[in-house]
Structure formats: C-alpha cells, structure tokens
Amino acid sequence: AVCQRCQARFSPAERIVNSNGELYHEHCFVCAQCFRPFPEGLFYEFEGRKYCEHDFQML
C-alpha cells in the first residue's frame, strides 16, 4: 500500500492513518490549505480534499 498524499510506501513499523479506506503516513494526514495536522483528528472534506475547521470556513 502507498500513502494517498505522497505516494510513498509504508514501512512495517510505521503508524498509518486510515480515513475512509484512504491510507496516509501520520505526517501526511494534514490540512490541504495550511498543511497542519488536524486537531483531535477532526477535519472537513470538500471536493475530495481535507481541511481543518478554520480553512474549511474560509472556502
């Protein structure tokens, strides 16, 4: 399997985020606008991209 964002493979010891069947490295699972991790894992999706609450409100 490969990361949805960076397309790199996962190492066996690595923590992986699964979002609706899409797999991400922990450091790749970030807001599409500000590139920060999601507070408490909370995000909003718009047109296939994931956003933090602040950036989602700015759309």
Rank of each mutant, 00 (worst) to 15 (best):
P39Q: 10
R5P: 02
Y51E: 02
F43I: 05
L23Q: 15
F10I: 13
G41M: 05
G41I: 01
C6W: 01
F29M: 14
R49H: 15
V30H: 08
F46M: 06
E47C: 06
E26I: 10
L23H: 15
H27Q: 15
N18M: 05
K50N: 15
E22T: 12
F56Y: 04
G48D: 11
C3N: 02
R5G: 15
Y51I: 05
A32C: 04
F10G: 02
Y51Q: 01
C52N: 05
L42K: 13
L59V: 13
A1Q: 05
Q4E: 08
L59A: 13
L59S: 05
Q4H: 13
N20D: 15
C28A: 05
Q4N: 15
F10E: 02
F29T: 12
E40S: 11
V2I: 13
V17M: 06
P12F: 11
C3W: 03
C52G: 01
E14W: 03
L59D: 01
E53S: 08
F35Q: 12
E14N: 04
F43C: 06
R49K: 13
E26T: 08
L23P: 13
I16V: 07
S11M: 12
L23D: 09
F46D: 06
E47Y: 03
K50M: 15
H27G: 05
C31P: 00
I16W: 08
G48R: 10
F38P: 09
C3Q: 00
E26P: 05
P12D: 15
R36S: 12
R5N: 10
A32L: 05
P12C: 15
M58R: 14
Q33R: 10
S11N: 09
Q57K: 12
H54P: 13
N18W: 02
E26H: 10
C6A: 01
F35W: 10
R15C: 07
G48I: 01
Y24K: 06
A8G: 15
N20S: 14
F38Q: 02
V2A: 03
D55F: 00
F38D: 03
G21V: 03
A1H: 10
C52K: 02
A8I: 14
H54G: 13
L23Y: 15
V2N: 08
F43V: 08
F38V: 08
R49L: 07
F46E: 05
A1P: 01
C28Q: 01
L59T: 08
V2L: 08
Y44R: 11
A13C: 07
M58F: 15
G21H: 07
Y51A: 01
A1V: 10
Q33V: 14
R9F: 03
G48L: 04
G41W: 06
E53N: 12
C28P: 00
E26M: 06
M58L: 13
E22G: 09
C52H: 03
H25C: 13
H54V: 13
R36T: 05
C31W: 00
E22M: 09
Y44K: 11
R5Q: 14
A32P: 02
Q7P: 01
C28I: 01
H27M: 04
P39F: 02
V17K: 13
L23V: 10
R5M: 15
F43Y: 13
C28G: 00
R49I: 09
R5E: 13
K50Y: 09
L42E: 14
R5H: 14
R5A: 15
R15H: 08
Q7G: 13
G21Q: 07
Y51C: 05
M58P: 10
L59I: 14
C3S: 01
A8T: 12
P37Y: 08
E22I: 08
V17I: 12
K50C: 08
D55W: 01
Q57W: 05
A32D: 11
E53P: 04
E26C: 03
G21E: 13
F29E: 04
Q4V: 06
L42V: 11
A1C: 02
A13G: 07
F29G: 11
A1K: 14
C34H: 15
R5L: 08
N18A: 06
Y44S: 04
H54Y: 10
F56I: 10
N18Y: 02
D55M: 00
A13W: 04
Q33F: 15
H27S: 06
E47W: 03
V30M: 05
V17G: 04
C52Y: 03
Y24M: 12
R9V: 11
G41E: 02
F46V: 11
D55N: 02
G41A: 06
Q7E: 02
Y24G: 06
C6F: 02
P37V: 07
R36Q: 14
Q33K: 09
R9T: 11
C6N: 02
C52F: 00
S19C: 09
F29R: 08
C34D: 01
F43Q: 14
Y44N: 14
P39I: 04
L59W: 04
R15T: 13
F46T: 04
S19D: 13
V2G: 15
S11E: 13
D55Q: 01
L42H: 07
F38L: 13
V17C: 05
C31G: 01
P39E: 11
Y24E: 05
R49S: 12
R15F: 03
F29V: 10
F10T: 09
G21F: 04
G41Y: 03
R15A: 07
R36K: 14
L42R: 12
E22R: 15
E26K: 09
A8C: 13
Q7A: 13
F10C: 08
A1R: 02
L42C: 10
S11C: 08
F43K: 04
N18R: 07
F38G: 02
V30G: 06
H25V: 01
Y44P: 00
H54M: 14
G21W: 01
C31I: 01
C34P: 03
D55T: 02
F35L: 13
H25G: 01
P12A: 14
P39H: 04
A8F: 11
G21K: 11
F46G: 03
S11T: 10
F43M: 07
S19E: 11
F35I: 12
F29P: 13
M58V: 12
E22L: 14
C52I: 00
Y51G: 00
F10N: 02
F10A: 04
Y24L: 10
M58T: 15
A8H: 11
R36F: 05
F10D: 00
Y51T: 01
F43R: 04
V30R: 09
H25Y: 01
Y24C: 09
H27F: 07
Y24S: 06
G41H: 04
N18P: 07
F46W: 12
N18Q: 10
M58H: 11
E47F: 02
C6H: 00
H27A: 07
M58Y: 05
P12L: 10
E40F: 12
S11R: 07
G41V: 02
V30Y: 04
C31L: 01
N18T: 05
N20W: 03
N18G: 08
H27V: 12
A13Q: 06
F10V: 06
C6T: 00
F29W: 12
E47V: 08
Y24V: 10
I16R: 09
R5K: 13
H25D: 00
C31S: 00
H27L: 15
S19T: 10
A32Y: 15
E53T: 06
I16D: 05
Q57L: 04
Q4G: 09
C52P: 00
E47T: 03
D55S: 02
F38S: 03
F10H: 04
R5C: 04
E22Y: 10
F35P: 01
A32M: 09
E14C: 08
M58W: 10
H54Q: 13
P12W: 05
A13Y: 07
E40I: 01
E14A: 13
E53K: 07
H25S: 00
K50Q: 11
G48V: 01
P12T: 12
N20C: 11
P39L: 07
E26W: 02
F38R: 02
C34L: 03
L42A: 13
P39G: 08
H27R: 11
C28L: 00
P37H: 03
R36H: 11
P37S: 11
G41T: 05
C34G: 02
E47H: 13
C6G: 01
A13S: 08
F43E: 03
A13F: 01
G48Y: 03
F38H: 01
Y51H: 01
A13V: 04
S11F: 06
P37F: 07
L23S: 12
A1D: 06
V17F: 11
Q33D: 04
C3I: 00
